[in-house]
Design a protein around this nucleic acid. Sequence first.
DNA 1: AATGAATGAGCCTTCATTCAT
DNA 2: GATGAATGAAGGCTCATTCAT
Lengths: 224, 224, 224, 224
Amino acid sequence: MAIRKDGIESSEKLLKAAMEVFAEKGYRKATVAQICHKAGSNVAAVNYHYGSKDGLYIAVWKNAFEEAMKVYPPDGSLPSDAPAEQKLRALIFSNLHRILDDGRLGCSGQILLREMAEPTEVVRQIFHDVIAPLRERTHKIIRELLGPKASEQDIRFCVLSVVNQCLAMGFRKSRKKLSPFFRADDIKKDVIDQLAEHVTAFSLAGIAAIKKESESKKLQLNRY
Amino acid sequence: MAIRKDGIESSEKLLKAAMEVFAEKGYRKATVAQICHKAGSNVAAVNYHYGSKDGLYIAVWKNAFEEAMKVYPPDGSLPSDAPAEQKLRALIFSNLHRILDDGRLGCSGQILLREMAEPTEVVRQIFHDVIAPLRERTHKIIRELLGPKASEQDIRFCVLSVVNQCLAMGFRKSRKKLSPFFRADDIKKDVIDQLAEHVTAFSLAGIAAIKKESESKKLQLNRY
Amino acid sequence: MAIRKDGIESSEKLLKAAMEVFAEKGYRKATVAQICHKAGSNVAAVNYHYGSKDGLYIAVWKNAFEEAMKVYPPDGSLPSDAPAEQKLRALIFSNLHRILDDGRLGCSGQILLREMAEPTEVVRQIFHDVIAPLRERTHKIIRELLGPKASEQDIRFCVLSVVNQCLAMGFRKSRKKLSPFFRADDIKKDVIDQLAEHVTAFSLAGIAAIKKESESKKLQLNRY
Amino acid sequence: MAIRKDGIESSEKLLKAAMEVFAEKGYRKATVAQICHKAGSNVAAVNYHYGSKDGLYIAVWKNAFEEAMKVYPPDGSLPSDAPAEQKLRALIFSNLHRILDDGRLGCSGQILLREMAEPTEVVRQIFHDVIAPLRERTHKIIRELLGPKASEQDIRFCVLSVVNQCLAMGFRKSRKKLSPFFRADDIKKDVIDQLAEHVTAFSLAGIAAIKKESESKKLQLNRY
DNA sequence: AATGAATGAGCCTTCATTCAT
DNA sequence: GATGAATGAAGGCTCATTCAT
């Protein structure tokens, strides 16, 4: 509608460009000049609209996360009384898509990954605020699956096992050449689905084994 | 006795300092000035001993990797005819210790991790050369565990599951505050051992489940 | 009115300062700091306006050459059917003024000279493109003066004789103390004119002698 | 004789290497590291043997000049009562060979040339001391050729004409591609001889013309 | 609202020189 | 006598930021 590029349009273009550049190069390697050039703006635009490079990065980050959460909610639109197995499955699907699906998410996943691998001071707090609930949700589901006899450490370890299987996928994406089935520019949606299915099956079996083990341990302890 | 330390000592101090700084800040954020200051040397020392910042980084990297491999060999000193389960267990122990054990390894693990999260042009090739054999070894073990009926994709997915459980642990270390049992400056050796035991049990169960599934799939296919 | 001079003014001041410093110190000895200081700018100004020290040098060079060619065109505004003697005279006047006249040309001549004595990689090509036509023009004139019987080598040697008489004058300028009549800061225009008159007379006589010689040589050859 | 490289040998190798490097790159562009590497010595060797880079350069320069003067003496071994024409011829031959003949002189000529084009502070005085006698000798010869009626300025101009024809040849050598007959790595001795013959003939004719002119001028002045 | 010009802090590197053996 | 190690001064360049319009 606007004949001239008004502020909103300009700052949005900046945000989009920044998202791409940050995703590709990381926070430090990316330069405001690159971003502004990509956005068709002047070098001063970043500071004008976002105060500083940091400001822009935070904006990008929040935006990326919100988008990711909107498109792939961690509960997978499941009713709250669904069985834990289904909840875990939804969680894994959500995680993997959030991390791997460039097609719909732009570079959100990559931005999040980078922040995880090399935490930037500027978003450390935000990051924590955002990750904690996810962790909490996962914790609850796994606790339910492990049953009442599992120790706190068993739960934590299983959380790690599940979450890490998803997280480290981000590594592969940035070096696609190493992993044959990640070679396509956009990893196909159905491959992600297959992967998620695998992780779910793998993890449920793993959790079941840990559960059994913990029960037999308790049993042993009870004997004496 | 000499006021001026001899070359070997000086370049080694430089290497050690670089290892720490690179591990803490990453390649780009680290400055040669910081490193030299930490090593008690002049700014020109890096250039004199290693040619350039890149040269120093490569030296650090190779050193870190060699050290890690020496202290925690991937075969865990197992005879080559050991059962696959034991081999997998050794591999997981080796991986996790390599990544998590600061106490004995300096920052080797962290350096390796960083390179994985944000590949540096300078060591890309070396990195690939070094990772490929590890991947190959893992692949073989898992193939053996899954049995002859498993599809190639099943194998790959299981490799990912196992390796990722270990890899992503590196994330935790850099942000210790998030993970309660990683809070100590040096993660205790026995915690790593427990974790490794967990990952082994979890993974063996996961692999077994995938194996069973693949066999039943084959069966189904045979029926028609 | 503006405290901050607008870009054109600033980059021009930079160009002027660079011209002086490059002329005085040569490419390598000149530092961007010196140039910027002289231009009243920040060290980063060179990079901002010209990309690099090289870029600035090339700009200076092109500017110097264009200016020199504009003020002292090699044809001396002579009609194209003027006699060869007059053309040679015009060429010599143009050459000498271009090289010696600081008053009107700034340091153009000196910059050109330096480039001739110690070719810089960055302007080698430009230099060649610029010198070749001049050489061609001189060649034609001398060929005309020498007549049809002169050998190609005779022509080349005479071109060298004429051109070198002019070129090497640049040496004197940089070490004014050695040559009494070059001592003034600006060599007086009339001294240059006298010098040019001398070189013209000297060279025409030299060429005539070579012509005569070549004709008698041919004659001798014809006899047998 | 010496089994190990004694000091003399070492410092001489250094001098030779320096001569080549200075000739090729010029004073500033040449680095002591390069020179020492070429001489097979340690970086500290230059300072040890010659005190500093400047010291080495001065040594090289003196050596080059002495060598050049020894091989091509400006009097061409002519008796002091030889006719002026022959003296001029000998001078021109000496000059041109000194400048152009790499074969016998190593890089002496080039070193001298460089110093002329871009005077180095360190040898300015030496240079002057060395050039002044040459200038004086040329001056005398030309004065004799021009006869008693020539003005001082006529003499100076003719000196310039003669000397410059020789000097500027040095330019050609560094950019051989521009001058077809300079293309060979070592300019052939007979080409230099031909060139010298040409310059002699050309100059004698030029001088004769100036002489005639000056006489007629005097005549004209006498009339009034 | 938006921008081209300009800045200053900081980084990596080069290089002649000095030190201690 | 000769050398490998080490240094400090300086140079060119990058980049986020600010200025004035």
